[in-house]
Design a protein around this nucleic acid. Sequence first.
DNA 1: CACACGCGTAGACACTGTCTACTCACTTTC
DNA 2: GAAAGTGAGTAGACAGTGTCTACGCGTGTG
Lengths: 218, 218
Amino acid sequence: MTDEGSLRERLIDAGVELVLSEGSGSVGLREIARRAGVSHGAPRRYFPTHDALLSAVARRGFEDLRTRFETAVAGTTTARGRLEALAREYVAYARERRGMFELMFRHDLLDSAPQAPGRSRLRESTLPLFGHFAELVARCRAERHAGQPADGPGEAGPPPRVTAAALWSNLHGLAQLWAWGSLQLALGDPPPDGDTGDARRDRLIAAVLDAHLGPVTS
Amino acid sequence: MTDEGSLRERLIDAGVELVLSEGSGSVGLREIARRAGVSHGAPRRYFPTHDALLSAVARRGFEDLRTRFETAVAGTTTARGRLEALAREYVAYARERRGMFELMFRHDLLDSAPQAPGRSRLRESTLPLFGHFAELVARCRAERHAGQPADGPGEAGPPPRVTAAALWSNLHGLAQLWAWGSLQLALGDPPPDGDTGDARRDRLIAAVLDAHLGPVTS
DNA sequence: CACACGCGTAGACACTGTCTACTCACTTTC
DNA sequence: GAAAGTGAGTAGACAGTGTCTACGCGTGTG
């Protein structure tokens, strides 16, 4: 039923492979067709324009990220633990698949046309993910307040959705700057002896989570 | 003395104008030359490649951002106030000059060659700005602790540089997602009646600053 | 068998970035 | 003052790109 032409999938595969190996800047339509073993006019049958093909590649990236999120979250049960796993996964994804991450947020290229009536636009497809994220933030705050009931001078803070938006943008910026190496540069190049880059990354992630969700109450 | 050819500057001007009006995706070398009123081969005399010209345009963007920071900071004296002004300016810049902001962080295009022996690479040119930023964060924490001396169970948190890096990445992500409209989408489209988009933006900025620097102690 | 149709090919077109040869005004030098 | 040189910009060529259009070619159906 969903065997709607295998070339469509092969083209996306070739695009993903090309983005991962050569970077997001050199994802030419003709080069993708070449790698898929077809002529340069073939993709037009499935994607009306170059941007549409790139959008499909980016969508594949979001799907990959989603499954990575799900398996990462499966390991823990507390909301805080899940947010930690999610944050680590996001940053790791941006670094490991840098070209893909870059492409996924090239809003000037992607998401120009409403694709098909069935398929939602790329931008809106990440909306349920944010909803899940905001729910996790709310649950995390509930967990936190379960320990010490109703104390402190209004430690409530902003509504969970706002906190979720703030934390989300923090993770996004962290993933991007870390993927580019900007933060490593800003924090000083040489990591303290024996301290690998991953440890610094984890420390940053912990600082971000502590800032938005409050420090862990062991 | 520094009258090193006016065409160089005119080309950068044309590039900036083009980026601002047409977006970061369509900054062709020939189009820039056309707007500057010269032939398509002329830029080659000053910029060896297209990327070099784009890097110069991006550098201009960073300079603009820097001066905007300086004038925004001049209004207030407290470290916290300055950080607020800086954050607002960053987010506003990304939204007002979206194409420029996009170009400035296209690491796949820019910063490929070490330019000239005198000029530092684009990435490193933002380093002193981060240093200033980290200093502000440290001063802000000092201001905060001046009120209530040495209390609470280790409210120290991570070292200032780490906090600065976390806050910096938060502002960057916030600016980007806000410029694209992703956060507006995630927070629900209709702003509460009478609440302009700017108010929501300010609320988000305040939440971010409170998270990393602690809430304001009026 | 003839027909139509989905799928892919091949060529054309305008456009791009890069490279190279050239013009031409202006300065330097004999 | 004339000749040589030099820097700035022009113009054409070349390979490559995305898009568009016309054309094959096999398969399934009337």
